[in-house]
Amino acid sequence: MDLNMKNKVVLITGGSKGIGFEIAKSFLEEGARVAIVARGKEALSEAKARLGDILTIQADLLNEQERANTVEEVVHHFGTIDVLINNVGGSNGSTADETTMDIFREALELNYFSAVHFSKLVLPILKAKQAGAIINISSVFGRESGGKITYNNAKAAMISFTKALADEVIKDGIRVNSVAPGSILHPSGNWQRRLEENPEKINQFVKDEIPAGRFGTPEEVANVVLFLASEKASWISGATINVDGGQSKSH
């Protein structure tokens, strides 16, 4: 299937490893021009070595100015932006009672406010061409309990933001959607670490909680992101699509 992504400029936050890396790889395979931004210099170098013709940007995405600088650098290098993938994220804290307010704020800044800010930064570019797509990587735990409370809260906010922004900008030719992965296994992720620490417990979790009977892969998430960014998804706006092998309890 030709997704008409050739020469489209795609910016992916948190794109150096895991799901973000596979999203970058999938767009490159479709002929897109790809920029990834992440904090870790070593991971960016490894991604560059594996992916080849890609723009890598090192930035702390908790910092507003560095987000703005990132968008400026992508536009300076490629001339425009067609697709934004808000993928950067992370889990912190513990219970609500034991988690400080600073940790709650940091979780929102990384998982949610970064997506809001990057979206606002690229909107003038997309509105000028009356075309484009923004895809937010949320989580099934943005719809129900299961992960850490700070992460759940931020991902729930992201799902709400996706629908609100989508309704606002669809008239400008811009589609905003979200993907909600379930438990995805990759070398740099939490599930890999937990699996190594306690394989019996984690294998039981998979058996009990994931109807498909296995973890998902980053490639399976990337495939859905690629579709949503393409013209084949022209009538999908404001949606959050579960990619979870049936894990989510929500309808």
Rank of each mutant, 00 (worst) to 15 (best):
Y151E: 09
V225Q: 10
N223Y: 11
G52L: 09
G18K: 11
S26Q: 12
K41F: 12
F118D: 00
I170C: 13
P187A: 14
L110S: 03
L121M: 10
I241D: 05
L195S: 03
S230Q: 06
P124W: 08
A133P: 02
S183Q: 00
A229E: 01
I184G: 08
D208K: 12
K148M: 12
L11D: 02
S94P: 05
F141V: 14
A47W: 10
A35D: 06
I170R: 15
N86W: 07
S188G: 11
S248Y: 05
S94M: 11
P181N: 00
A154I: 00
A35Y: 02
A233H: 10
M101N: 12
A35Q: 05
F78D: 02
I149G: 08
L110D: 07
L51T: 08
Q65I: 10
L165M: 15
V179H: 08
Q247I: 03
T95M: 07
P211V: 07
L165D: 05
A166G: 15
Y151P: 04
L123G: 07
A47Q: 02
I137W: 01
L195N: 07
G31K: 10
E200H: 04
S183T: 14
D53W: 08
S139M: 02
S188K: 13
I19C: 04
N87T: 03
N177C: 04
N203S: 11
I81F: 08
I135H: 03
I149V: 15
I184H: 04
A115L: 08
L123Q: 03
D82H: 15
S230I: 04
K6N: 11
A180T: 09
V243F: 12
S188L: 11
R33A: 07
M5N: 03
A154K: 03
M5P: 04
G146F: 07
H76V: 08
F27T: 00
S91A: 14
Y112P: 04
G52D: 11
E106G: 04
E109P: 07
D208V: 11
N4F: 13
V243N: 10
A131Y: 12
D167Q: 14
K155M: 00
S250M: 14
A24D: 02
K163H: 14
H186F: 15
P124A: 06
K8R: 13
S237W: 01
K25Q: 13
L110I: 10
G147Y: 08
G15A: 02
R33F: 09
T240W: 07
G90I: 05
A47T: 10
N7D: 15
T162Y: 09
F27G: 06
G93N: 07
D102K: 11
G147E: 02
I210F: 07
A180M: 12
E231L: 10
I57P: 06
V9Q: 07
E106H: 13
L44R: 01
I137H: 04
M158R: 05
G216N: 06
K201A: 14
K25W: 06
S119G: 11
D82A: 08
M158K: 02
A229C: 11
D53M: 01
N198W: 00
L61W: 03
T99G: 06
L126E: 09
K8A: 01
N223C: 05
L110K: 06
A43K: 14
A180E: 12
N63F: 08
L44M: 06
T240N: 13
L55A: 03
E22Y: 11
S178P: 06
I149E: 11
E98V: 09
K6Y: 06
E106Q: 15
L3C: 09
